[in-house]
């Protein structure tokens, strides 16, 4: 299936429109996301990423242009139907945990959508298994690590069996271990279900795993393409306040000290391989 699950068409949004000195947070933005894709939306803090997230779930509506999701135009009428088909995980693990325990929290969206009790029990278990938190049914949020809380939030989204999962800076407040847990969970989910994922992030290591990257700057789309193509633009990213993945940073540093590497390396292994070829040619 190759249908479009989310699209922005010339979308512009300005906070405090009446004040003309305020620049639009999102300016004439167009993109579309296919069913089954993993898209990373990257940009430094203040590049318009969080406004895009709010436009995606109907917390904000565009002033010009249109947003379409699940084949419907985003409007007051279609809003709840669209929301029931997408899950969203936010930045702060504490501020989105509604339930008193893990299982209550996962059930929250199901309760809201009037899912019958027997069905809920099955779905809650299933969703928690998918994020490997099935042993924590009765745990309270303050006894969980940040990574665990975010996985519970993902389970809460999955329980609704959504077509789209949006991660809005979901890893930015976590420690490295928590970040790994969440990224690993998403990778496995993708492998198992092919769920469409939009991750909004400033972590390019995370973005490198996506099928496609959209780079935002000052409310506008700066770059778009497959990760290796985007990373090849090197300095342009660094100038935007973003950091290249480690192996690419190393490639650049090696060039600076006079090692004429040919490729741009997305992984450490590729870099090691070229260095080895380089070395053995001598």
């Amino acid at each position: 299936m190759n249908s479009i699950i989310m699209s922005f068409e010339n979308v512009t949004f300005t906070y405090m429109q009446e004040d003309e000195s305020v620049k639009p947070a999102v300016n004439d933005l167009s993109f579309s996301i296919q069913d089954g894709e993993w898209i990373a939306l990257v940009g430094h803090n203040g590049s318009g990423k969080s406004t895009i997230a709010k436009l995606m779930n109907g917390l904000l509506f565009p002033q010009t242009g249109k947003v379409e999701a699940m084949g419907k135009l985003m409007s007051e009428e279609s809003l709840w139907d669209i929301r029931s088909q997408m899950g969203m995980v936010f930045q702060n693990p504490d501020n989105q945990f509604v339930g008193a325990t893990v299982q209550d929290d996962v059930a929250f969206a199901l309760e809201n959508n009037g899912v019958p009790h027997e069905e809920m029990v099955v779905r809650v278990k299933e969703a928690l298994q998918q994020v490997k938190m099935a042993d924590y049914l009765d745990h309270e949020p303050h006894h969980l690590s940040g990574g665990q809380k975010q996985r519970v939030a993902i389970a809460g989204a999955l329980a609704l069996r959504p077509r789209l999962l949006i991660l809005d800076e979901a890893t930015s407040m976590l420690d490295p271990q928590g970040r790994m847990e969440v990224i690993e969970t998403i990778r496995e989910l993708r492998k198992a279900t092919g769920l469409t994922v939009i991750s909004i992030t400033h972590d390019l290591e995370e973005a490198a795993l996506a099928d496609r990257i959209l780079v935002m700057n000052a409310g506008e789309k700066q770059l778009e393409g497959k990760p290796d193509a985007v990373f090849r633009s090197g300095n342009e990213l660094t100038n935007l306040g973003l950091d290249l993945p480690f192996s690419m940073r190393m490639t650049h540093l090696l060039r600076e000290v006079g090692i004429e590497l040919q490729g741009e390396h997305m992984t450490e292994d590729e870099l090691v391989d070229e260095l080895w070829t380089f070395y053995s040619k001598k």
Binding site: F246, S247, R249, M250, L253, L254, E256, V257, G258, I259, E268, D269, L271, V272, D273, L275, W276, Y279
Partner: peptide, 30 residues
């Protein structure tokens, strides 16, 4: 340090010192 180890294993050499920073690693490799 992980990259340095990978490199050392692959090439069968030992770099001069443990590289604590990216700049140091680049210099060591050069």
């Amino acid at each position: 340090i992980r990259l340095q180890q990978k490199l050392e294993d692959k090439m069968g050499i030992k770099l001069d010192s443990i590289s604590l920073t990216e700049e140091a690693l680049a210099k060591n490799i050069a």
